[in-house]
Nucleic acid binder design. Structure first.
Length: 569
RNA sequence: CGGGGCGUGGCGCAGCAUGGUAGCGCGCUUGCUUUGGGAGCAAGAAGCCGCUGGUUCAAAUCCAGUCGCCCCGACCA
């Protein structure tokens, strides 16, 4: 391509609308333009990157035997009523009405349509397993679109759905997709982790999120450097070694703590550290009011409480409930003498002579020990932090920020039951299909790549995703010899199948250098009058500081070598 | 939806407390000079000051409403 003929509107200054780096750079480098909140047009450069991601995905999905289809964006209400999601999905589902007053919606996902398709067409176990996928536009009327492409309302997603005749088949399909995802993100050149994710109501261990590691990520990934354990923060377990028999009892003393409610206030007032306190959190749950005990310097993890103890829902209690349950005001709750079920975090089991609330205004109790009250048991109930022990190997856990670009999930019978997707097994017996769904945020993947890799001059996209691999930059297009050579190299590289752009614009060299860096073209060939006198051109790699002067005859070979190196990384 | 902020040539902003001529930088057009890291000189084009209503002799500026966008929280690829 000739740069002068391409639509690449770059910007020197940061646009006001952008906050995060990927958003700024995508606007500045001419990858995207905003049409409306959370809705973007992809310009030629951005689209080239997007297509590269799509292509990698297609290849890896096809390799696993998944088959590409394309389902409608506009869908009838009836299917969504059938799955129960017309009601449940909430405002995020954009509903529209056609000229005949029929209710429709813009698809945020395609479980309904794909399940409907398969239940109509697949009757026999002989046609299973089946995995279908598509790369398509989704619309989710997000509460708050932000960060440009990262959380748009309209976005490109690859979604795949597997249908199996039984659990073990479904697990096999799941592992295939997991494997495909590992390949896809590795090929994209990411530093990433597959982490165990919360499975919500469905339960089980069959949900993984694929997180691109980046300091600006919205999610936190907890991982072990030793054994490979990795989990989303909301699910991350913590290793624990309990001490033996703490038998102290009855030595506690009530102390006045006037007006001190918060852990820090109480600790400071009593001259101890927050870690010597145990806080008592009162929750409303579907099984009544409960108390959760957590060491003063740590936070309770509601997701873990929910799943470990088996509540359908829980939320922190309001003031009235606390007063009724503890006979004391907010801020002074404690386990001693409470007759609601108490669940303690593991930490508490190892603590000695700690401080708790007195269930009475301005009173706390110190020198308390575990034997002074009774709990349902000790569990892993707190939010993991860097430095905590790994649940698998007791090594130290690390916390990193990540961007979720993919999610694999075993659905089980959820949709096949709701929508009656059945087949006849070998014995002629009707069975529900066992399903799985697997998503990749394709457009987000491009943004994540930039977020993970950039510098003060612009993008440094992974080689597999770059819009162009080589930029040929003649310093002065009026210099005939430069241009002749530039075109020769250009045509030569094109013939070799390299994505090459020739910056033939009549601009000052500085402008062309800056644009090349901003877009992050990995290999730059600079052709200048001075070097050319000695038969030399210059070659520079985007992420390296120094450039290399080489004989013009060697350019093609050098470029091809670099490309090979990049592809191997 | 709750909280905060912003709408002025294509982009980034000033002007607004105290109403009266719409301004700066970048970009754009033309010419000349320049040609290794966002050039210099000269001449130009381009704005319904988000929109609607009000106050006033007079509104970018004051008042009311409205629309849009961005940021912080609850949701998610």
């Amino acid at each position: 391509m000739l740069f002068s003929k391409m639509f690449i509107p770059t910007m020197k200054e940061d646009p006001k609308e952008a906050e995060v780096i990927s958003h700024k750079l995508m606007l500045r480098a001419g990858f995207i333009r905003r049409l409306s909140s959370g809705i973007y047009t992809w310009l030629p450069l951005g689209l080239r990157s997007l297509r590269k991601v799509e292509q990698i995905i297609r290849e890896e999905m096809n390799r696993k035997g998944a088959q590409e289809i394309l389902m409608p964006l506009v869908q009838p209400k009836e299917l969504w009523v059938e799955s129960g999601r017309w009601e449940k999905y909430g405002r995020e589902l954009l509903r529209i009405i056609d000229r005949n007053d029929r209710d429709l919606c813009l698809a945020p996902t395609h479980e309904e349509v794909v399940t409907d398709l398969v239940r109509r067409e697949v009757r026999s176990y002989k046609e299973l397993p089946l995995t279908l996928y598509q790369i398509q536009t989704k619309f989710r009327d997000e509460i708050r679109p932000r960060f440009g492409i990262m959380r748009g309302r309209e976005f490109t997603m690859k979604d795949a759905y597997s249908f199996d005749m039984d659990e073990s088949g479904a697990e096999h399909s799941y592992l295939d997709m997991y494997d495909a995802y590992m390949n896809i993100f590795a090929r994209c050149g990411f530093k990433f982790r597959a982490v165990e994710a919360d499975t919500g109501q469905i339960g089980g261990s069959f949900s993984h999120e694929f997180m691109v590691l980046a300091d600006t990520g919205e999610d936190v990934v907890i991982s072990c450097s030793n054994c490979g354990y990795a989990a989303n923060l909301e699910r991350a377990e913590i290793g624990f070694i309990g001490k033996e028999g703490m038998q102290k009892k009855g030595q506690y003393k009530r102390v006045e703590t006037p007006g001190k409610k918060k852990v820090d206030e109480v600790a400071a007032f009593l001259g101890v550290t927050p870690a010597t306190l145990v806080k008592t959190l009162i929750y409303n749950t579907d099984q009544g009011v409960i108390g959760v005990l957590v060491r003063g310097d740590r936070e309770a993890n509601e997701t873990k409480i929910r799943s470990l103890i088996g509540f359908d829902w829980l939320e922190l209690s309001d003031v009235e409930t606390i007063e009724k349950a503890t006979n004391g005001p907010l801020g002074f709750s404690g386990p001693i003498g409470l007759d609601i079920p108490l669940y303690a975090d593991n930490d508490v089991c190892n603590m000695e002579d700690f401080v708790v609330g007195g269930n009475e205004r301005d009173i706390h109790v110190k020198d308390v020990n575990v034997a002074d009250f009774s709990v349902k048991g000790f569990f892993d109930l707190k939010i993991a932090e860097e430095g905590d022990p790994c649940p698998r190997c007791q090594n130290v856990l690390m916390a990193k920020r990540g961007i979720e670009v993919g999610h694999v999930f075993k659905l089980g019978l959820k949709y096949s039951k709701a929508m009656n997707a059945t087949f006849l097994d070998k014995n002629g017996k009707e069975q529900f299909m066992v399903m799985g769904c697997y998503g990749i945020g394709v457009s987000r993947t491009v943004a994540a790549a930039i977020e993970q890799s950039h510098d003060e001059n612009g993008m440094i996209l992974p080689f597999a995703l770059v819009p162009f691999e080589v930029d040929i930059l003649p310093v002065n297009i009026a210099h005939e010899e430069s241009m002749v050579l530039a075109k020769e190299i250009y045509n030569n590289l094109l013939d070799k199948g390299i994505d090459v752009v020739l910056d033939d614009r009549d601009e000052r060299p500085g402008v062309k250098f800056k644009d090349c860096d901003l877009i992050g073209i990995p290999i730059r060939i600079t052709i200048g009058e001075r070097n050319l006198k000695d038969g030399n051109v210059e070659i520079k790699i985007r992420q390296e500081k120094e450039s290399l002067k080489i004989k013009k005859e060697e350019v093609i070979e050098r470029v091809l070598n670099y490309v090979e190196d990049f592809k191997r990384m």
